[in-house]
Nucleic acid binder design. Structure first.
Lengths: 247, 247
DNA sequence: GTTTCCACTTGATCTCGGTCAAGGTATCCG
DNA sequence: CGGATACCTTGACCGAGATCAAGTGGAAAC
């Protein structure tokens, strides 16, 4: 009886890294080895998980909640460079130092692996590296998609783009119905949205209000969003095709 | 006698992908296999190598010249999302479709591998995937660094950032002397610079003139740049540390 | 209850970079 | 040689978004 057969794969979903990075097709035997070096960590909203420049001795993935990657200049200007939703991977095998701040945007649970053993395991099991390569290529595409948003879109288009991304990621959790209204709670403050979009929070507020006034979205309170027509929103975002941003 | 011993590694430098992606420490035996699926392609300045959305049946790396990755909206707004200098890798193992336009910015020579055989080889030789993962992580860091430039820097800082990146990459070719003036030729038109920086070509022109007037750079003709003080330039760019952008 | 705090909204004004337009310079080609 | 073209520069004006400032609303704390 192989390790694979012994191991209960029925709950692969509760640990995204096992599921997405390691157990891609549930065809591996090294899961037990991973179990040995795995641990969970919880963070409160607002907490900084790691500072840019600090040594980072783990890799992992988001189980629940939202984390953000942020870069900051000396004078305080900050730019969010990534949004980590559940199942997204954090960390760089082969790197010692964190290249940006990682913060918990909401309450957050992460599934972590000590970096050294994980790297060792990666050396022994080729498809982990290949799986990570695929995920990293996805992130790279997303980052480059975002460069278009930052460099060339108007404030209104930026807001629409962000809403569209969150809607697509979030909606898939609830229901993958592309027709019919999409409903979700914004997991970001106006300030966090501004940092992501390269705007000020005032401009974010104004443009959200404008989209509401024009019926592109409707708001209940400040965070609860309903999108009556996803196609309309994507038009507003200036997206022809999809413009997926899985990060 | 192993293949490795038979193979002449003395010119590993003339083929960046062999050198950087495959033959990282010249410790591999599969070089001859790669030789079989390798070919070179030349492009003239301005030529489009591949269009966004087209099938891409090769991977490769830049041998000489400069290529750019570009995204375009329906209304014509364009954003450059990557600059490929010699030794940089192009292509996504495991992907069928090119996610953005790839263009030759200058005359260009690429070293290509047919994608399918390359992927097969990658499956058999783990360290190729690991090497590609490292390179992709570098690109991702660079893209995220660039998001800060696009989202939060002023026009002057953007120009200084771009000059600083080119200077650092180009200078290492000629001489890695960080003190003393750095001299290089701009490989980009004002318009290409604008597309990279999320500006208009007029603003680029104005800010280049301003940096020249202020003695941060000096120009001979329109393209030949001398940087008397690299530290000064990096201050102008708003970079504290380095902000390297290897893409 | 009311006080405090935080996230958000809205208004008034300013400014950086975009837009439109004209002119300059080098190279190629008849 | 003169004319065409591509690339670049400079000026005048304008507007999207930043900045500064005041006010709102809701939830937690007292």
């Amino acid at each position: 009886m192989t390790l694979k057969a012994q191991f209960d794969h029925s709950n692969c979903d509760d640990c995204p890294i096992r599921h997405r990075a390691v157990c891609a097709q549930c065809e591996t035997d090294e899961l037990e080895e991973l179990e040995d070096i795995k641990y969970y960590r919880s963070f409160e909203a607002g907490q900084t998980i790691i500072w840019s420049g600090d040594p980072m001795n783990f890799v992992g993935s988001v189980v629940s909640g939202i984390a953000s990657l942020t870069q900051t200049m000396e004078d305080g200007r900050t730019q969010m460079v990534g949004l980590l939703l559940p199942s997204d991977f954090v960390g760089r095998p082969g790197r010692e130092i964190a290249p940006y701040d990682v913060q918990a945007t909401t309450d957050l649970v992460m599934c972590c692996f000590r970096k050294k053993p994980f790297e060792d395991l990666m050396g022994k099991t080729p498809h982990i590296a290949q799986r990570l390569l695929q995920m990293t290529l996805d992130e790279l595409d997303a980052a480059r998609e975002w460069m278009l948003v930052l460099g060339r879109k108007t404030a209104r288009e930026k807001i629409a783009s962000l809403l569209s991304i969150i809607a697509r990621r979030d909606a898939s959790v609830s229901k993958t119905v592309l027709s019919g209204p999409i409903v979700f709670d914004l997991p970001l403050t106006r300030e966090a949205m501004a940092d992501y979009l390269g705007l000020t929070l005032e401009t974010v507020s104004r443009q959200v209000s404008a989209l509401k006034k024009d019926g592109v979205i409707s708001l209940e309170g400040k965070r609860h969003v309903t999108i009556p027509d996803m196609g309309r929103l994507m038009e507003e975002a200036g997206d022809d095709s999809d413009g997926g941003f899985p990060v």
